[in-house]
Design a protein around this nucleic acid. Sequence first.
DNA 1: ACACTGATTCTAGCGTTGCTAGTATCTCTG
DNA 2: CAGAGATACTAGCAACGCTAGAATCAGTGT
Lengths: 188, 188
Amino acid sequence: MSIAERRERQRAERYDLILAAARELAEAEGWDAVTTRRLAGLIDYSQPVLYSHFKGKADIMAAVATRGFEELAARLRMETANVTGARDVLRNVCDAYLGFARSRPVIYEAMFVLPTKIKFASEETPTALRAAFAELVAALGPDRQEPEFLAEVLWSALHGLVVLAQSGRIPATGAEARLNVLVQKFGR
Amino acid sequence: MSIAERRERQRAERYDLILAAARELAEAEGWDAVTTRRLAGLIDYSQPVLYSHFKGKADIMAAVATRGFEELAARLRMETANVTGARDVLRNVCDAYLGFARSRPVIYEAMFVLPTKIKFASEETPTALRAAFAELVAALGPDRQEPEFLAEVLWSALHGLVVLAQSGRIPATGAEARLNVLVQKFGR
DNA sequence: ACACTGATTCTAGCGTTGCTAGTATCTCTG
DNA sequence: CAGAGATACTAGCAACGCTAGAATCAGTGT
């Protein structure tokens, strides 16, 4: 079985190679620059090889997004784990969310903006995505009324701030003032 | 000068024809279906005619979006004009915003989601867009601290609710409950 | 050691996209 | 009624996602 295992391993390595290339190219030049031809060139394989790993370009982006969910969940977890004042936790989690979006704008785009096949709020939802949402719920503190809805509205506000700023529809200046407003409104 | 005027008028009519066709096609099948060839076919002209009116597809979408700003501003104005309780005004304006997004999803997309050349929060910002934002500020009531930032955060929350729902990332059910949460948090 | 078989990867190409150069046509002017 | 200028067309380019079919490589059995 060792030959089959080696093949499997090599395939997995190439899978990672594709994802890394897609991520780097997207971060450098945006998702429009991520064409199947350029991607194939970057990994020194021909174009159709991509289709033996992924159904298509959308599938590649979904895979990049899934890894993004893991990173986001980890970042948020770090903030809820540090138990300080409840107000601080909310603020730090929001800040971490915004920070993630700022540091990985194109991955955020794949996760939350571009059309996606990934199922949200269902049984097929990736674990990491559920975990990230759970951190938002936790950050709002216990004993809230309708915690799911509350967290969804908070998430909407955070997401709105991110995308409107990224697309230049909200000024780059004043980000901290807006965060203050948000925390004040959603804090106890 | 009457011949030149007639030509001018005919050009303007064709301009409107293109915009109407783009809008209808987008509403029926989405922006991806709005190709320059299909658009040309719908108005019974050849493809390059489009480029005598617009710089390109993005320019056409921007024009559709601009008309959308006018409609949105008008809808919001109707709610702030009806002076009832301050809490009701905020609620009604938010509801009107969400209603606009629901009734004209693809126009909303061109206005607030897709990459755009339209300048926001600057001197070149279309009048209707400024007006719409001013309605949001007004809905929050007078004598607020940092009314601009507050309105921007409210707008972000509304926008987040819209796009996350439209892309299936937030469940379709519970929209009213989320609106309740939002109004409760941002009301006095 | 060698031919066979099946998986793997490549070349080449399809249909579509936004956009444009160059030609033909059509309209108004002198 | 002929010339000039605006107007709209045909035809084509480069790039896109994706795929069929040929070629090449690896592992197996005799």
